[in-house]
Design a protein around this nucleic acid. Structure first.
Lengths: 209, 209
DNA sequence: CCGAACCTACTGATCACTCGTTAAGCAGGC
DNA sequence: GCCTGCTTAACGAGTGATCAGTAGGTTCGG
């Protein structure tokens, strides 16, 4: 490995810089091309071209195509997990409020980061084993947040579903699917969407107020 | 086009034949390889090898790699739609019973045809426009079955959800996701799974008995 | 009952091209 | 003179697709 991996290195570009050369142009281009054509369907030549760089310039910033994908997914997965943690920290310890907060955070993330969410869902399996194992921890942590909330609600008797694990999976699937169909140009705004999915989630866990 | 497309042609092999050369070996191999590596990650050489055929023999049966994928997805989508139609025909016209039937058919299909279901979900976007447009009809038809049931239930007052479209999407997402996590070697059998997801679906539409 | 014609289901070789990756060099700034 | 941020040029492997050829069988006129 002669070329150092600058993909997760210090940013060295101040935020708000003109956005021209290098790292962030590449990240943006990779996000677009991976989203359009999938990992194997995307060529690094296309990514470099979209970023306005030569093929070799790409290799200055990332040691491989795989590193480009892993960096993208890792950044997005970490952002999602942070968002959930913050939302839950503000929600207190009532399971109903925590479920509301978790649904709101998830729906908002899937809407605001639709492209990254779809890449994360579709290209996860194209991560090399080392990367996948590293990131699986993050994914498991997010699932544990959901499971903890549902289980606690059932334990306290505010959620009355018989199979908390299936309820959790149904909620996660429904919220995550939003990234696939939501159209930001449509009439349905984020607050309404959050309200609808909160109501659905509460019905799935059989919430008794 | 010198090679005719035999992919959807008459079978000419009696059912129950030794299963050796040709069409069905290829279909099986393509299903496995597309599922393991995705459309762009799979090479037709790998598919031919898995089928026990030469590269050129593959081109005798299918005019292109794309035709292999399209045939696979079309067959599976049609089987799913038929299964739903039959289940609904037997269910009568009570919306609750129709929803039960539709959930049962979908869960059963996702379990029994896990691999094809995942290919359908993941590789849909790798269909060329002509193929995608042709198959979009099938997909829309299936969604219309769901929508018809939920809308009718709301109209009759047995389902009390405020946003039938979101309820429908949530149910579809939850049922379809089963193909991603269900392990047939696990302890959870199909009848139990159907029962759980039927209960979840009825809660999502806010069923009042 | 022979042989020419025709069919199915392939094989082997090869085409033109794209792929991810690398080596070597160089302009500009500190 | 060294570091940053590239550039041009190439490498070998692998890609989807094509084509001429052929073994083994069936059909059919005479």
């Amino acid at each position: 490995m002669s070329t150092p991996d600058r993909s997760v290195a210090d940013l060295r570009v101040a935020p708000g810089v003109p956005r021209g050369g290098g790292r962030d142009a590449l990240t943006g281009a990779a996000r677009e091309i991976f989203a359009e054509r999938g990992y194997h369907g995307a060529s690094i030549r296309d990514i470099a071209r979209r970023a306005g760089l030569s093929l070799s310039a790409l290799y200055y910033w990332h040691p491989s195509k795989q590193s480009l994908l892993a960096a993208l997914i890792e950044e997005s997965a970490q952002a999602f997990f942070r968002m959930c943690e913050i939302a839950l920290a503000e929600a207190g310890d009532d399971p109903t409020e925590r479920l509301r907060a978790m649904v709101a955070a998830t729906v908002e993330f899937r809407v605001r980061h639709r492209v990254e969410s779809n890449i994360g869902a579709r290209e996860w399996r194209n991560l090399e084993p080392a990367n996948r194992e590293r990131l699986d921890g993050l994914r498991r942590s997010a699932t544990l947040l959901w499971a903890g909330i549902v289980d606690e609600g059932v334990a306290r008797g505010v959620f009355c579903c018989e199979h908390p694990d299936d309820a959790r999976r149904a909620i996660e699937a429904a919220c995550n699917a939003i990234a696939q169909w939501y159209d930001p140009r449509g009439e349905l705004g984020l607050p309404d969407l959050v309200a609808r999915y909160t109501a659905i989630a509460l019905r799935i866990v059989d919430h008794r107020p």
